[in-house]
Amino acid sequence: MSADGNPALEAIALRRDLPGDPPATLVADASLSIERGSFTTIIGPSGCGKSSLLYMLGLIDRPTGGTLLVEGRDVSGMDGDARAQLRLERFGFVFQFHFLLPEFSALENVMLPIRRLGRLAPADGKARAMDLLRATGLDGKEHKTPDRLSGGERQRVAIARALANDPALILGDEPTGNLDSHNSQRVVELLKALAHEEGRAVVCVTHDLSIADASDVRISMLDGRVRSIERGKGNSAP
């Protein structure tokens, strides 16, 4: 599953049009490659298409043109169920808002992807979820429902949930957008560690230039097009 030479994600001339007259183009001819073990940010002004690109990279939205390879595998022709299965196994998402299920405790939220995948025995799944919550600093809060957690805690639960099935790719849509600088810093450190220490590919859409500066690769977008891809300073990207 790893180190087979393929990049984690490869987009070739990815395109997303909205039907209409005339059709609106959200993303045009986006070609890029995301490596394992790297922390990539996508930046650009509001409405430049960065989130649209992220959702296509995460198999949540379907491109209207171009090719997308996930770990070397062309996913263009996959049906909805196959894409859902791939999301379940290989992707983890963190959104601007925590997006936890409100009726479920932190632990149950983290266990959700594990139970859906169904590869671990219930006791093992629970142990894994507890480990993830501990790793994200949520010891002792496993049984709290989201409304009894702080904003930073919720986002960390969301990250723990994104990691539940040990994904190769973590995608974030403004994961720090709703956090104060302290919590924001903590989340970024966590995401960076996931890339550098655990070898996952982390891609985040952000407005926050300080996060972009901390990233290994910075993709700038404007008007639906990729304007530049810059390698950042001081990083361990291969």
Binding site: I60, A84, Q85, L88, L101, L112, P113
Partner: peptide, 16 residues
């Protein structure tokens, strides 16, 4: 609707 979207992003299928 929000929870549905979350579950879909996690990898729940439409049939789920």
């Amino acid at each position: 609707r929000r929870d549905i979207a979350i579950m879909r992003s996690i990898g729940f299928s439409q049939a789920d």
